[in-house]
Design a protein around this nucleic acid. Structure first.
Lengths: 231, 231
DNA sequence: TAATATATCTCGGCA
DNA sequence: TGCCGAGGTATATTA
């Protein structure tokens, strides 16, 4: 990885066009040819960047640019598209190079897949007497997160989200419509389950006869830990 | 901005939990207290990070950690939530600090707003004899991108996207449902316009009687340039 | 402040 | 490889 602090202007031409006026910024060149242009604020998103795979060519500026104070031109070309990043460097303030090696990568816990596993194991949280039919029940339009049977023997489709938004209700609605076309399965009712359900999503769900279920991940994980410890 | 290359392990605890095993990485500390952990690959997204506003406290490790080789513990605490990033530093390989100043920021061209302006100007692309009623036509549930009148005098609602996904079709469906409740406006038909329309979205749109329109931004901008040059 | 739509989204999974 | 869904989505706009 190469780190450069420089006074520069940046232009991106590709899926859109974007321009950064002259200022002092961090330029990060990664081993895969990707380049990130960061300012000293904002979030983790760079001001401008080039995704890998890409190649960096450092060129001498044309005469007109030299007169404007440009000392180097970095041409970062994406390997598989016409996307291009052009960095006009006016002054190099710092430069260093480092060998980082390959990263072992991130281990996550608490994403939708974990929620799904826990709810499948603790399906009684969806309702008393519920039994699991299966997770990731495939249909023509995609997988239903959890398919279960309620105490009365009726089929229930459960859509899981970390954050319950209107999109999720639409998604579950499409599944229910499809499942209810199958006479062997109908009637199928729906449960929209999430750690947090937005008011609008709740209104839409109830309007469509879909039950809402708020999940407490920490509690569910706690139960999971206790159960794991028993075996 | 402070740049550190270090052998470290990282833990994030907040909306979820995430762990990075020991490896050499770049740590970027920005002026607003945000911290980015980057490896020498991937794209612009850091392996792990803390969003601003945040504060960094550097602490001496506990004895047990010292024995494992930890020399410094960075505790990055978000200012407005319980999100926390803990970086256990084993070896500092490089360190430098830089004053970047405030960035003037990015200028963009070619986002949805530009597409919308161009299609409004070239509304004939939606169909022969089309006339523009208005852009951003407000309804109770949000603005319809473009409202137009077709050759026969019927109202047409156009939803614009750069990438036509299923969400956009749902959005347009909601608008059409609402607009068609108004007897003065009904019947209103829909056109789903995008630079690229995903197959699933196309199927759903056609199933709901919504026409699809693929837009060529470069061509539209080219026409725009030519027209601009005439005046 | 809260909700909504966009993104050069990125990233992972699966056909 | 392309499509599809999730994201600690982040970010800008607007009511």
């Amino acid at each position: 990885m190469r780190l450069v602090i420089a006074q520069c202007s940046v232009d991106y031409i590709g899926r859109l066009r974007a321009h950064l006026p002259l200022a002092t910024r961090l330029l990060m060149v990664k081993a895969d040819g990707s380049v990130l242009v960061h300012s000293d604020g904002g979030s983790y998103k760079p001001l401008n960047w080039m995704s890998p795979p890409a190649s960096l060519r450092i060129m001498t500026p044309e005469e007109a640019d030299t007169e404007l104070g440009v000392t180097e031109v970095w041409n970062v070309q994406h390997a598989k598209s016409d996307d291009r990043l052009v960095i006009n460097i006016h002054e190099l303030l710092h430069e260093s190079s480092h060998d980082l090696g390959v990263d072992p990568g991130l281990v996550k816990d608490g994403v939708e897949a974990d929620l799904q596993r826990l709810l499948a194991e603790q399906i009684h949280l969806a309702g008393t007497g519920f039994t699991l039919i299966r997770r990731e029940y495939m249909t023509a339009i995609g997988p239903v997160d959890i398919l279960a049977r309620d105490a009365a023997g009726a089929t229930v489709a459960i859509e899981l989200k970390r954050r319950g938004d209107i999109d999720g209700v639409e998604q579950l609605t499409r599944y229910l419509e499809l499942l209810n076309r199958d006479p062997l399965m109908a009637p199928v009712r729906g449960i929209f389950a999430a750690q947090q359900i937005k008011p609008q999503a709740r209104v839409l769900a109830l309007d469509r006869g879909i039950d809402c279920l708020t999940l407490d991940y920490d509690m569910m994980r706690g139960v999971d830990d206790v159960e794991s410890r028993l075996f």
